[in-house]
């Protein structure tokens, strides 16, 4: 059987909110080492990878590896019934066709349980190699959200260029053009306000803004976001989920025909 308890249930709520617009359904794979998900959007140009480690949970037990086929809009409907301060326990028997979610209020005076129907989903796993990137940029997650939101109102695609001067986001559209440049900045006493640019070589890539904006649905999960760029490879937009794990979004660059 599988059983996992997380006292900070709001994290699970935020994770599903971050995913559900991008991927309709997918297999959450559970194993003794934790929970993971790899899913592509319907057009297969972006991929989300979620890893939640067993030791990040208050309690975690998984006797047998199994995929749990989840419809994320339905998962979201049930998680919306959990209070923000509730502890959430997930439970499933081996080869079950449902996932039980139990919500406990912080003073344990309210307990509710819901069953989510599981689906049988054929999915393929892609091997994503660990690699060095030409540029890695850490910035406040709220800053990333603001940039992609602002630029989406001007254009459809963004050119992201990382140089020793900083990281520049450029777009253009019917109303005109926009450029936002962030410089390396570690002057704040608060680490989450830092912008850290780790540049091995200059790189410039173009991406569809609507996906980058979609990734910012994960903003509530982490104070910082990391962007990783290498020529001709997908950008990685990564949010650390506390001690629990991380969520990474991959988006293919636009290529001139």
């Amino acid at each position: 059987m599988f059983e996992a308890k997380i006292s900070q249930g709001s994290v699970l709520k935020k994770l599903v909110e971050a995913l559900k617009e991008l991927v309709t359904e997918g297999n959450i794979d559970v194993s003794p080492s934790g929970m993971s998900l790899q899913a592509m959007d319907s057009s297969h140009v972006c991929l989300v990878s979620l890893v939640l480690r067993d030791d990040g949970f208050d309690h975690f037990r998984c006797d047998r590896n199994m995929p749990m086929g989840i419809h994320f809009a339905n998962f979201s409907k049930i998680l919306k019934c959990a209070g923000n301060d509730d502890a959430i326990t997930l439970k499933a028997e081996d080869n079950a066709d449902q996932l039980t979610l139990m919500f406990e209020s912080s003073n344990q005076d309210r307990i509710s349980d819901f069953d989510l129907k599981l689906m049988s989903i054929e999915s393929e796993h892609l091997g994503i190699p660990d690699q060095d990137y030409s540029a890695e940029i850490k910035m406040p997650a709220s800053e990333y959200q603001r940039i992609v939101r602002d630029l989406t109102s001007i254009g459809d695609t963004v050119l992201i260029s990382a140089t020793k001067e900083g990281i520049k986001f450029s777009t253009s559209g019917d109303v005109g053009t926009a450029n936002v440049t962030l410089r390396h900045n570690t002057t704040s006493e608060k680490q989450e306000e830092h912008t850290i640019i780790d540049l091995k070589e200059p790189v410039a890539l173009t991406f569809a803004l609507r996906y980058l904006k979609n990734f910012s649905n994960a903003t509530a999960l982490a104070p910082q976001v990391k962007l990783s760029l290498t020529k001709d490879l997908p950008i990685v937009v990564e949010y650390q989920v506390g001690e629990l794990g991380n969520i990474r979004f991959y988006l293919a660059p636009k290529i001139d025909d």
């Binding site: 297969h44 393929e124 796993h125 892609l126 997908p234 991959y250 293919a252 636009k254 025909d257």
Partner: peptide, 14 residues
């Protein structure tokens, strides 16, 4: 026009 490749063209299927 700019195109976009599928994720499967960057990462091999396991």
């Amino acid at each position: 026009a700019a195109g976009q490749k599928s994720m499967t063209s960057f990462f091999a299927k396991k």
